[in-house]
Structure formats: structure tokens, C-alpha cells
């Protein structure tokens, strides 16, 4: 089986005045055509850095190595010029904060049309028509008029829709959505996810959805990949992650989802402690200081990512003796 995106041994380190920050360590994963991969993990686990590394949008302080083959080409070895032909054309990306992601001094329509103009051989008028069409597709009402409005005339939800329109205007094969709903209020979150789902169906998009909200993922992802402290700790099909959890960190993450039923009196569980320093990661398992199942061995030995079932990988020394975690 060939993958749309196949990442092998991705490492991202940042040069800082305190030393090297190991933001992403030996991350390997692949995404097949048409599927939705959710990347979850708490703040600072390296989700955004992974995505930005793939788009080669990190600043000069980032040292990237590894291999990322996308539609048969390696993203990390191509020239910047070739990469520009991929960004916005073959891979679209949307970001967390739609309030600041659009340029305040250009109209929304111009910003959408621009991505069409630079990647296609078409006239300004055709690009604008395409922008209007895209705005309609993502559910911006009255798009013929709103195409000439500026970002400040749009609400947060509408701006995120505009970002989606921009990201998919050239019918890319991959959409990377980095916490697309985190900055939005709950009702709008659902609408924006619905938009992503519907465009995914209509243009056959593969989606890499980054979020720390497992509740959001539950109804949306085909596969889930859990990250902790720059490492991949568990990956499997959605239902296996939810019902056959094998990694203690994933379990803790699932337990911290506020109950949908909201039974009065039940306390919200949190994960105690903090993630380790990425400057000088301690030996042993990185989650071990916060893990309820930790043993002496966990402090000394760094666990490998091991197969624990069909397409199911987990990074835990005690995978086999703990079994399914509930």
C-alpha cells in the first residue's frame, strides 16, 4: 500500500540560547489517501512543530532531519522554490487563531484569489470567481458581497471558514489543520468541523487534524496518533484508541475529557505534574514521573514504539503486562 504522506524518523531541534530543544524526536507515521489522521497531545508535545516542519515553515533556528515523502517526493530535500509549489497547492494548512491568521489590510477575497493566482495560470477575474465559489463551498453566506470585505468584518467562525476556503482553493490532496477550532466558541467549533468534513467528502481530501481535544476527534478521525514530549506514544484506529487503550498517557488523556453527561459531583480528572524539559530529556520513559503504572525499570529504560495489535503501536515498557487500560 502506498501512502499519501510517509514520514520517517522526523527530528526537529531548536537552537536556543540555553541549548538544543528536542521538540520532535524520531517521529514516523504515514497517512493514506482520503483518511483523517488526528494528532493529539497536550500543549508543548510537538504537534504544531511536526506540522510546520512538514510544510518547512519553521524559522532558521530549527534543525530538521528525517524523511517526508509526499506524493512520491521528499519534502525535506526539494528546493525552496519547489516547496513553494507544494504549499497552498498540494498541501493546504489552516491555523489555530483565525483572528490573526488573515492579513488585516487585504480583502478576504483577494487573499483567497491570491493563492489561486500564484498556482494556476488564470486571470484575476477567474481567480476571484474561484474565491467566491470556495467561500460558498465553506458556507460563507452572501459570498458575492463578502468577497470584497476585510477580515475585521468577519466573525471568528467566518474567518476560519475563509482560511479553509484559502487552503482548499487549489484542491490540494492534504489539508493540515492545526487546532482549527481551539480559538472558537463551542457552537462554532461544531460548524467548522462540519465544514471540514463536507469539503473532505466533496473534494476527496486527506486531513491531518491536530488538536488536544479528544472529544472533537471522537466523531471525526479514522486514526489517532498520540504525542507526548515530542515523541509518538500510541497510534491506532480511532476505536482502538478509545476502547483498547494500551498506553498510560493516552489513558490519562482520555480520562481528562470532561464527561458528556456531566454527572454532578464527579470531579474532572487531570494529569498531575508537568512534561519533562525538552532541553535535556531525562533517561527512561518520558512520561514515567507522571505515570500511575511506573516501575523502577521505567526510570532507567527508554521504551520503544512497539506493535501491540493490528496497526496499533504503543510506547510503554509494560504494554504486555498491563494489557488494555481502562
Amino acid at each position: 500500500m502506498t501512502f499519501l504522506l510517509d514520514v520517517k524518523g522526523l527530528n526537529v531541534r531548536f537552537r536556543t540560547e540555553f541549548g538544543l530543544v528536542h521538540a520532535v524526536n524520531e517521529v514516523s507515521f504515514s497517512v493514506s489517501k482520503g483518511e483523517t489522521l488526528a494528532v493529539v497531545g497536550e500543549s508543548g508535545s510537538g504537534k504544531s512543530v511536526t506540522a510546520l516542519a512538514l510544510m518547512r515553515l519553521l524559522d532558521r533556528t530549527a534543525l530538521i532531519d528525517g524523511e517526508a515523502s509526499f506524493e512520491g517526493v521528499n519534502l525535506f530535500t526539494m528546493s525552496e522554490k519547489e516547496m513553494q509549489k507544494i504549499r497552498g497547492a498540494r498541501i493546504g494548512m489552516i491555523f489555530q487563531d483565525p483572528m490573526t491568521a488573515l492579513n488585516p489590510v487585504f480583502t478576504v477575497g483577494d487573499q483567497i484569489a491570491e493563492v489561486v493566482l500564484i498556482h494556476r495560470d488564470c486571470t484575476k477575474q477567474e481567480a476571484k470567481t474561484r474565491a467566491i465559489e470556495m467561500m460558498g463551498l465553506v458556507g460563507i453566506p452572501d459570498s458575492r458581497r463578502r468577497v470584497d470585505q476585510y477580515p475585521h468584518e468577519f466573525s471568528g467562525g467566518m474567518r476560519q471558514r475563509a482560511m479553509i476556503a484559502m487552503a482548499i482553493a487549489n484542491s490540494p490532496s492534504l489539508l493540515i489543520a492545526d487546532e482549527p477550532t481551539t480559538a472558537l466558541d463551542v457552537t462554532v467549533q461544531a460548524q467548522v468541523m462540519e465544514v471540514i468534513r463536507s469539503v473532505q467528502e466533496s473534494i476527496g481530501l486527506t486531513v491531518m487534524l491536530i488538536t488536544h481535544d479528544l472529544g472533537l476527534v471522537a466523531g471525526f478521525a479514522d486514526r489517532i496518533q498520540v504525542m507526548y514530549a515530542g515523541q509518538l506514544v500510541e497510534t491506532a484506529e480511532r476505536d482502538r484508541i478509545f476502547y483498547e487503550t494500551r498506553n498510560p498517557y493516552t489513558r490519562a488523556l482520555l480520562d481528562s475529557i470532561p464527561s458528556q453527561l456531566g454527572v454532578p459531583g464527579t470531579e474532572l480528572k487531570t494529569i498531575g505534574g508537568n512534561p519533562p524539559s525538552l532541553l535535556s530529556p531525562p533517561p527512561g520513559c518520558l512520561f514515567q514521573p507522571r505515570c500511575v503504572h511506573a516501575t523502577e525499570d521505567c526510570r532507567m529504560t527508554r521504551p520503544e514504539l512497539k506493535s501491540v495489535g493490528q496497526n496499533h503501536l504503543s510506547r510503554c515498557l509494560r504494554s504486555s503486562d498491563l494489557g488494555v487500560l481502562r
Partner: peptide, 9 residues
């Protein structure tokens, strides 16, 4: 960053 993500030079 958005402008770069669009593939602009």
C-alpha cells in the same frame, strides 16, 4: 505565516 503557507515567494 499564512502567506508563506500559501506558497508565496
Amino acid at each position: 505565516r499564512t502567506a508563506r503557507a500559501k506558497g508565496l515567494s
